[in-house]
Nucleic acid binder design. Structure first.
Length: 731
DNA sequence: TACGACTAATTTTTT
DNA sequence: ATTAGTCGTA
């Protein structure tokens, strides 16, 4: 028992060995959060306080779930199979498969990923003849998911205006369509299993009795519905005592508000459960002192915090290096040189990360890295199960498992092309609407030319199903690739990237083989064993975000995707107003605080050395933008930084004289900036007849298009045409 | 059905 | 600058 706790600090030990009560662990960046969580689980089991079956552990990503399982198995010789450790969605899927009857779903229901969901919505709008200009599919998708995440069904939505009323109708139509097609989207997995537990007392009590300890990772990222789901499972119910909720999170690292995460859940949890144990893990084992001090100083500017101060006993380490480039290209060139010199000094490339706020920034960086021959890896591209050819193949498999899946049907009915045109499909959609059946089932009701065109497709799927019924899964996939004509299509010259796509299709067969190997053999002799499970796996786990994990390459990623990772050296690029913090966020309520948390996450990724860089001008959307340096840069105490270039960019609160000619390097300063701005400078105060006094924040375009952005304080942020606006310099 | 031309949008992302 | 999506023509 003691060896489990070996090496833990006081707070960590306290958290791991808490008595069976609710607990909230405020775990700062790099404070050993995952270790505490997994050790807590191992400790609970080892001390006999709970059996592996009596425990529920929830994470957000499959990666985190896998790591948790791996660490637990390393600590305890137990079989984790059968333990309920997984993502919210994975566990809900499990719940719904087990109780599909009670949840009013067929056992083989399919899961729509976001792209499938969007396709389904587009199809819905088309059949209902809805103007997609007025109701953009993406917006509707966001609306529907947002409502579901609030726990709302169409009847629960308060609609005060015509627009919302109509969207609610479409929400209801969408639900009907999903039910008809036996498909379930991500939000629905959550909501459906929440409702199952809520309304089915025997099932609810069964799980409430079973789970004595519920542990939640990244609790700050939970949305409203997820929190309610947890409350339902953990809440006592009459004679059934409540479970212990052990929530681990960091309010300062809450960066997913834009997709529904509610940091407020942390406070709500503490209040509603009268949490007797709030433990702060503030000792950081990752970063040097200077880096932590910078992070602490930055996050201290946020007002809505639970409060935490990271510290380390590692010493202050190196200063934070700041580089100010003239252009984004210069920034990238400098970065590559610096990286090359680090590598020459013996640092391995995979220990270096280049972070940016938005994906668009990676292009310039990649270009320079590529020309210099430095190998790199970009996170966040298409994932395996999201690739076009893979989705096509999966669509055929989905039709075998569930012919009513109209999304899959529509996707491949004419791919590879088999002469089924828009007219035939329209006829089919109309007929399906009148017969209130699936596209697949409606084909037999068609007449004339459309029927002739589509019938062979249905026959083909039928043949596939019977031919493959008794085959093992990988062979099913192989067979489908051939019989559908997909392989032939990508083999032909006209398909672009054919070779690569064929490789991915082969990879899909391997994925199926791996999946089968990791699954227990199916009990009964059923047709297409494991097919539905494999399809669920494909939807719930889209595959790795990165390619070639083994290669020693520089890691490029957005700050968001860097959360949870750490590197010896971090380059944080594009520290400019408008970019980081992003313009769109500054306008939102509390948006700036979230951007600052993002900055905090970025800074705390670095172990040894942190570089922070910015460019005075940057190509954005094909136009050069002139930028001020980010306010976040100014929030780092001066004593912690070391400027590699003379400080020259405008700060947000300009001090008198800071922009004098003497501060600029005359020979190399970007000449356009002053020329295009008619003698005005970024950071300069100007007077406008209507808006009053403001500060020039940014400029873009040239000639007649030249526009400048001015912060008029209480009168707001305005973009004004330089040639039109009458501006007087102030001071 | 396939291709080229034109238009609009372009923060962050897991499941 | 780029890319996805729509529209009209061959």
């Amino acid at each position: 028992m003691t060896d489990l706790l070996a090496g833990l600090n006081r707070e960590q030990t306290q958290a791991v060995t808490l008595p069976p009560q609710h607990a909230l662990i405020l775990a700062g960046a790099g404070s050993g959060k995952t270790r505490v969580l997994t050790t807590r689980i191992a400790w609970l089991i080892q001390t006999g306080q709970v059996t592996p079956q009596g425990l529920l552990a929830v994470t957000f990503t499959n990666k985190a779930a896998k790591e948790m399982i791996a660490r637990i198995t390393a600590m305890l010789p137990i079989n984790t199979r059968g333990m309920w450790i997984g993502t919210f969605h994975g566990l809900c899927n499990r719940l719904l498969r087990t109780h599909h009857r009670e949840a009013n779903l067929p056992q083989l229901f399919q899961i729509l990923d976001s792209a499938d969901q969007l396709a389904a919505i587009k199809r819905l709008l088309k059949t209902l003849n809805v103007d997609d200009e007025k109701y953009p599919p993406r917006e509707l998708q966001h609306f529907i998911n947002g409502q579901k995440e609030q726990g709302h069904r169409p009847a629960d939505v308060e609609a005060w205006d015509e627009f919302t009323r109509r969207r609610v109708e479409l929400f209801a139509e969408y639900e009907a369509q999903c039910q008809r097609e036996s498909v379930v989207d991500f939000a629905e997995l959550l909501l459906r299993s929440y409702e199952l537990l809520k309304h089915n007392e025997p099932i609810r009590k069964h799980y409430q009795r079973r789970f004595r300890h519920i542990l939640v990772d990244e609790f700050q990222d939970t949305n409203k519905l997820q929190y309610r789901w947890l409350k339902l499972l953990a809440g006592g119910d009459g004679e059934v005592p409540g479970a212990c909720l052990f929530c681990v999170g960091d309010d300062d690292q809450s960066i997913y508000r834009f997709r529904g995460a509610e940091v407020g859940n942390m406070l709500a949890f503490e209040r509603e459960f009268q949490v007797p144990n709030v433990i702060r893990l503030e000792q950081n084992y990752r970063s040097c002192g200077n880096i932590l001090d910078a992070a602490n100083a930055i996050i201290a500017n946020n007002t809505q915090r639970l409060g935490k101060q990271l510290w380390t006993d590692q010493g202050e380490g190196e200063p934070i290096r700041v580089y100010e480039a003239f252009t984004d290209g210069d920034e990238a060139r400098w970065l590559v040189e610096e990286i090359q010199s680090l590598v020459r000094d013996g640092l391995s490339r995979s220990d270096i990360a280049v972070l940016y706020r938005s994906n668009a920034q990676s292009r310039v960086l990649e270009h320079q890295l590529f020309s210099a021959g430095v190998s790199y890896r970009v996170y966040g591209g298409l994932r395996f199960f999201e690739r076009q050819e893979v989705k096509h193949a999966l669509a055929y498999l989905r039709l075998i498992a569930n012919p009513d899946d109209d999304t899959a049907f529509a996707r491949v009915v004419n791919f590879p092309t088999r002469g089924i045109g828009a007219r035939s499909l329209e006829a089919l959609q109309d007929a399906a609407r009148t017969f209130n059946g699936s596209l697949y089932a409606t084909v037999s009701h068609l007449t004339g030319k459309p029927r002739k065109a589509i019938e062979p497709f249905v026959a083909m799927i039928e043949k596939m199903r019977s031919d493959t019924a008794a085959l093992p899964l990988p062979e099913v996939v192989d067979h489908v690739l051939d019989q559908s004509g997909l392989r032939e299509h990508y083999l032909s010259q006209k398909a672009k990237d054919g070779q690569e796509r064929l490789e991915n299709l082969d990879e899909l067969i391997s994925a199926a083989a791996n999946f089968v190997a990791e699954m227990p053999a199916p009990e009964a002799a059923v047709d297409h064993p494991l097919l539905a499970d494999f399809l669920a796996h494909a939807s719930l786990e889209a595959g790795d975000h990165q390619a070639d994990a083994g290669e020693d390459a520089i890691q490029l990623m957005t700050v968001h995707s860097a959360k949870g990772l750490e590197f010896d050296v971090v380059f944080l690029t594009g520290l400019e107003e408008g970019l980081f913090p992003h313009d769109n966020s500054v306008r939102e309520l509390d948006g700036l605080e979230e951007e600052r948390r993002l900055m905090y996450v970025a800074v705390t990724r670095a172990r040894q050395r942190l570089y922070v860089s910015l460019a005075q001008s940057r190509m954005l959307h094909g136009q050069t933008r002139y930028c001020m340096r980010s306010r976040f840069l100014d929030e780092i105490p001066v004593g912690l930084t070391k400027w590699l270039t003379p400080q020259q960019s405008a700060s947000r609160q300009p001090s008198p004289g800071a922009f004098g000619a003497g501060m600029r390097r005359a020979a190399t300063a970007p000449a356009q900036a002053s020329r295009d701005l008619n003698g005005l400078r970024i950071g300069q105060a100007v007077q406008h007849a209507r808006f009053g006094v403001g500060t020039i924040v940014a400029a873009e375009g040239s000639g007649a298009d030249a526009r400048i952005q001015i912060n008029f304080g209480p009168n707001g942020m305005k973009w004004l045409l330089l040639g039109v606006a009458k501006l007087e310099p102030v001071g």
